[in-house]
């Protein structure tokens, strides 16, 4: 039977990633025990909106991992850059400012895609150096300053900081955007030529080349997608914080990779799917929520996230080894 994105197969994909949802359920039970008022629609929405930023970033990052390029570590700088540029362009009016901010993020993604795809740079090292460069560049260009939008009533800035707080039929806009990205991403990954070729590339680059796949183009598009998602996250994050600044996206690279790996996308590429990644995002969100209920401080939360990442990668590697070298 063909594996496609028919409703039945979305269900089967969900069943495959049942493990991560089971973990999410356990964590939810833990939250419910820690705080009796957890089991309400409000707190469900609260969790969803709390993980939305991470979810948006992870949905894009998943493409980079899936296509065998491990991770885009320049994501935090793309988040910050798109936010700063949006704020800086606000005098042009909100729509144009949003376009500028997104284009700024996409420009970084396009550069990553070109260098990794065409020049075959190591994706980790390249994006790491881009993150370093971009931080320096933003500090230089905006003289180390935080950039505040003019939020007087009726200005584009006022509408801008309202974006994060918008709700549609009681559901925050950011939650809808995240869900939309996951649905669109799942379609892209499973039902388009680009998604299928990304899987081939992630499974074996050499074989993708001898299959006549335009490898540089596919790599380029994957990095562009990750940057697109990060730019959207950058707009929301900047709107939430009411300021644009170079350090805004800090930590999202690692958390996103953790969510991607937890969701069953293999770091070696070619395997996994976005419903699983969504589960990974939920687990991280619930874990954070639970730790907050238990009064775990932010730094200790990082320790836990790190341990979760190590455990998830270890588990993946163990499973790959158990399957034999032809699958590694």
């Amino acid at each position: 039977m063909p594996r496609t994105a028919s409703p039945k197969n979305i269900v089967s994909a969900a069943v495959e990633s049942a493990g991560i949802y089971l973990v999410a359920l356990l964590l939810a039970a833990g939250c419910a025990m820690a705080s009796p008022d957890f089991l309400t629609p409000e707190s469900f929405l609260r969790i969803l909106s709390a993980v939305s930023l991470l979810g948006i970033v992870a949905a894009g990052m998943a493409f980079v991992t899936y296509s065998g390029n491990m991770a885009d570590l320049s994501i935090p700088s793309i988040i910050a850059f798109s936010g700063i540029v949006t704020v800086a362009a606000l005098p042009l009016g909100l729509p144009l400012a949003l376009v500028c901010g997104t284009l700024a993020g996409l420009a970084v993604g396009a550069m990553n895609g070109l260098v990794v795809g065409v020049l075959q740079a190591n994706p980790i090292l390249w994006t790491l150096s881009v993150a370093f460069f971009m931080e320096g560049f933003m500090r230089f260009a905006w003289s180390n300053n935080q950039l505040y939008p003019d939020t007087a009533l009726g200005t584009p800035g006022a509408s801008f900081i309202h974006i994060f707080r918008l709700t549609i039929a009681g559901i925050p806009l950011i939650v809808l955007v995240m869900l939309g990205l996951f649905v669109a991403g799942h379609f892209l990954m499973t039902r388009t030529r680009f998604g299928r070729e990304s899987q081939l590339l992630g499974s074996c680059r050499a074989a993708a080349l001898t299959s006549g796949i335009r490898v540089p183009k596919v790599v380029f598009c994957n990095f562009l997608l990750a940057a697109f998602a990060a730019s959207i996250a950058g707009v929301f994050l900047t709107s939430m914080n009411k300021l644009g600044v170079f350090y805004l996206g800090q930590g999202y690279d690692f958390k996103a990779v953790t969510a991607v790996v937890l969701g069953g996308v293999m770091l070696s590429g070619g395997r996994g799917h976005l419903p699983g990644v969504f589960g990974g995002v939920l687990v991280i969100g619930l874990l954070t929520d639970l730790m907050q209920h238990l009064g775990v401080t932010a730094f200790r939360q990082n320790i836990v996230t790190g341990i979760v990442f190590i455990a998830a990668v270890g588990w993946q590697q163990y499973r790959l080894r158990a399957q034999g070298k032809d699958y590694a």
């Binding site: 899987q199 074996c204 074989a207 006549g212 796949i213």
Partner: peptide, 24 residues
């Protein structure tokens, strides 16, 4: 692609034939 199914391997080179406007 040793990790992928026989099906995915056989169609690996013919995506242009199996897609229309990029949709598979």
């Amino acid at each position: 692609f040793l990790r992928l199914s026989v099906r995915r391997n056989v169609i690996a080179s013919i995506f242009p034939l199996l897609t229309r406007f990029g949709i598979y």
